[in-house]
């Protein structure tokens, strides 16, 4: 297999059409390769999310009980989602900065559907830790949003990165308001 020195064709003297013979042998080996590749796909594809995992990809949550200034953490696809009922002060602060000057330029209104209800993935965009700042007792960082204790990233009240190693803002998951009080995430 490793050595090409004895291909069927080269040792062939008396077969009428050596090219034809080459073809069938090469084609057979090629077909074997094709077969292996075809079997390879299911073996790899099984690692992708299974049907039951995908079916859980949306979560509905009632946000009516979140008091102003409070936040809740819910699970979506096994990850925490922060939902914060922002005070008018927090909204004002988020709008006070010029979003285009930030590390990951984004205006606050581009990140919310309703200004009072901020929904972001609670996963630091640096290396995946969960930032602090959900509970009133926790450190919120220099910008009154969230602070990631792992490597010191500071997020503002819009979940935008302001200081520290994280490259981008906290991700906003796809969500829709089913009614005034129910949000479906995913």
């Amino acid at each position: 297999m490793a050595s090409p020195k004895r291909t069927p064709a080269s040792s062939d003297k008396d077969v009428a059409d050596p090219k034809k013979r080459d073809f069938i042998v090469v084609a057979t080996y090629a077909m074997a390769g094709l077969g292996v590749a075809a079997v390879g796909w299911p073996l790899i594809n099984q690692m992708n999310p299974a049907a039951d995992t995908l079916a859980l990809a949306s979560t509905e949550v009632d946000v009516s009980k979140i008091a102003e200034g409070q936040a809740i953490t819910i699970t979506w696809r096994g990850k925490p989602v922060f939902i914060r009922h922002r005070t008018s002060d927090e909204i004002a602060r988020a709008n006070a900065v010029d979003g285009s000057n930030l590390r990951d330029p984004e205006e606050d209104e581009a990140r919310v559907q309703r200004p009072e209800m901020l929904v972001v993935l609670g996963v630091c965009t640096h290396l995946g830790c969960v930032p602090l700042g959900q509970k009133t007792s926790e450190v919120k960082g220099d910008y009154e949003g969230w602070f990631c204790p792992c490597h010191g990233s500071h997020y503002d009240t819009s979940g935008r990165i302001r200081k520290g190693p994280a490259p981008t803002n906290l991700e906003v998951p796809p969500y829709t308001f089913l009614s005034d009080t129910i949000i479906r995430i995913g």
Partner: peptide
Amino acid sequence: FFLSIFVIMSYFAKRRVWADLH
């Protein structure tokens, strides 16, 4: 279907390769 073709092809490939032992 694929494997049937593979069986036929490998059979003839085998015959070709072994032909030079005559």
